[in-house]
């Protein structure tokens, strides 16, 4: 029953860089189980990341891995996908990496609906640089650049992705790890731009400064806060305060996928050319 993660991990890389109690390791294990479930050939996977704690993940996995510049993972990933459209391209990116400096690339990748799966590790903070607030840090939370409590309103990442045109949007949490496997499987299988926001905990620079005495407290907060979307919709409005939906939040099948449309054009041009050649 114990899952053999070792087949996917690059030798000698553990223990990984993430802090004690950081939940990224939980999500990392989920991703490895997903690759195993889907029986993906490791040669055909490109895992691309930007800069930040989450973006160190590619270094640990035995795929084609690319650790790029802050916020720009999706630009690199789009290039890889357009050059090799039949390969699997996955992006891992933190909340700041994906929606602050990377925001422009995030919305355009969604708009383009190119077949890439984006895993946004949302731990509500810039962890790598020591705890500055990010576009998802809740109002009033403490951060090193909001010493009097955060006044910056936050993004709702699923709504942002849906509004920008992503054809698959889901939210999972590090606590609901088994459920997360199913979401990531579905996201990868979906043809088009899939976004999975994954709620995480950063005990070191966010949790302990915002009433979560231990990493487990924040995991239990996830358990109490996030409800399956179906159950969430049934809640009467007054009961939804402080609760959020998780699971597949939006899915639109049959939208044109960018590479398919592009290479469909290439085929049409080729046929026209062959047609003209026969006429001569």
């Amino acid at each position: 029953m114990a899952f053999n993660y070792d087949q996917y991990i690059r030798g000698g890389k553990l223990p990984h860089i993430w802090c004690p109690g950081c939940t990224y390791g939980i999500v990392f294990k989920s991703l490895l189980r997903v690759v195993d479930t889907l029986k993906l050939n490791r040669d055909d996977i490109a895992l691309v990341s930007g800069i930040g704690c989450a973006s160190r993940l590619p270094g640990y996995v035995d795929f084609n891995t690319l650790h790029t510049t802050h916020g720009r993972a999706l630009g690199f990933a789009t290039g890889i996908k357009m050059a090799k459209p039949d390969k699997h391209v996955l992006v891992v990116s933190g909340d700041g990496d994906a929606t602050a400096i990377g925001g422009n690339h995030f919305i355009h990748a969604c708009r383009r609906n190119i077949d890439i799966t984006v895993l946004v590790f949302n731990n509500y903070i810039y962890g790598m640089t020591g705890g500055q607030y990010s576009p998802t840090t809740p109002l009033g939370h403490m951060a090193t650049t909001m010493p009097y409590g955060n006044i910056d309103p936050s993004f709702n990442i699923p709504e942002l992705a849906k509004g920008a045109g992503a054809s698959f949007v889901a939210r999972g949490t590090a606590y609901h790890a088994a459920g997360l496997d199913r979401l990531i499987v579905e996201a990868i299988q979906h043809k088009g731009l899939s976004v999975v926001e994954i709620i995480n905990a950063c005990p070191t620079t966010h949790g302990r400064r915002n009433k979560f005495k231990s990493p487990t407290d924040q995991l239990l907060w996830m358990k109490d806060t996030f409800l399956p979307a179906v159950a969430f919709e049934k809640l009467p409005p007054e009961k939804t305060a402080g609760k959020l939906p998780m699971g597949v939040l939006y899915k639109k099948e049959g939208l044109p996928e960018y590479c398919e449309t592009y290479y469909g054009l290439v085929e049409r041009l080729k046929k026209q050319k062959e047609g003209r050649a026969q006429e001569r």
């Binding site: 720009r72 630009g75 690199f76």
Partner: peptide
């Protein structure tokens, strides 16, 4: 498109440069 190559107009020059590096890393 006439030769089966990939053309991308990206959302800004930063993304364009990133896409080019990604394309090259993928063999183009």
């Amino acid at each position: 498109p006439q030769i089966g190559g990939a053309f991308l107009q990206m959302e800004d020059e930063i993304a364009a440069m990133a896409a080019v590096i990604g394309g090259s890393l993928a063999g183009s």
